[in-house]
Computed example of a mutant assay.
Amino acid sequence: MSVLIWLIPVALAMGAIGLVGFLWSLRNGQYDDMDGAAQRILMDDDTPLPPKRQDDAG
């Protein structure tokens, strides 16, 4: 039963740290563009690779 004296404050402190981290990420705009990453993965803006040279000594 004496373990609860340590576990409850530790659990509350970890919850408070998580809440502070979440609020910090909200203020810094981490959740502003939720669809941007999903759209960027579909865009094909890579430059094509140059054609490979075939060697006749093969």
Score class of each variant (00 low, 15 high):
Asp35Tyr: 09
Ala57Pro: 03
Pro9Asn: 05
Met14Gln: 04
Gly36Ser: 08
Ile41His: 05
Ile5Asp: 09
Leu12Pro: 00
Asp45Arg: 01
Gly21Val: 06
Gly15Glu: 02
Asn28Phe: 11
Pro48Gly: 04
Ile17Thr: 06
Leu7Arg: 01
Ser2Leu: 15
Arg40Ile: 04
Leu26Met: 15
Gln39Pro: 00
Ala57Gln: 10
Ala38His: 03
Gly29Trp: 00
Ile41Val: 11
Pro50Ile: 06
Asp45Ser: 05
Ala38Lys: 08
Ala37Ile: 14
Ala57Tyr: 12
Thr47His: 15
Gln54Tyr: 09
Asp44Met: 01
Gly58Ile: 11
Arg27Trp: 01
Pro9Leu: 04
Asp55Pro: 03
Asp33Trp: 09
Arg40Ser: 10
Arg27His: 07
Gln30Ile: 09
Ser25Leu: 14
Thr47Tyr: 14
Arg40Ala: 13
Gly36Pro: 03
Met14His: 04
Phe22Arg: 06
Ala37Pro: 14
Trp24Arg: 08
Gly29His: 01
Asp33Gly: 11
Ala13Leu: 14
Ala11Gln: 07
Ser25Ala: 13
Thr47Lys: 15
Leu23His: 05
Asn28Thr: 15
Pro9Phe: 02
Val10Lys: 00
Leu23Ser: 09
Met1Lys: 09
Arg27Ala: 12
Leu23Pro: 03
Ala11Leu: 14
Arg53Asp: 07
Asp56Met: 06
Tyr31Ile: 10
Gly58Leu: 13
Ala13Ile: 09
Pro48Leu: 02
Asp44Asn: 06
Val10Ala: 14
Pro9Tyr: 00
Ala38Leu: 08
Ala57Val: 12
Leu26Asn: 13
Ile41Trp: 05
Asp46Ser: 06
Arg53Ser: 13
Ser25Val: 06
Pro9Ala: 02
Gly21Ala: 07
Val10Asn: 02
Leu49Cys: 06
Val20Glu: 05
Asp56Ile: 05
Leu49Asp: 13
Leu12Arg: 08
Ile41Ala: 13
Arg40Lys: 08
Asp44Cys: 00
Arg27Gly: 15
Pro48His: 02
Ala57Glu: 12
Ser25Lys: 14
Asp45Met: 01
Met43Pro: 00
Asp55Ser: 15
Ala16Thr: 07
Ala11Phe: 11
Leu12Thr: 02
Ile17Asn: 02
Asp32Cys: 02
Asp33Ala: 14
Ala37Gly: 15
Gly29Thr: 02
Met43Tyr: 06
Met43Gln: 07
Ile8Val: 12
Leu49Tyr: 06
Ala37His: 08
Gly58Phe: 08
Ala16Gly: 08
Gly21Lys: 03
Asp35Leu: 13
Val20Thr: 08
Ile5Gln: 11
Gly58Met: 10
Asp44Ile: 00
Ala57Asp: 15
Gln30His: 14
Gly18Cys: 02
Tyr31Leu: 07
Leu49Met: 13
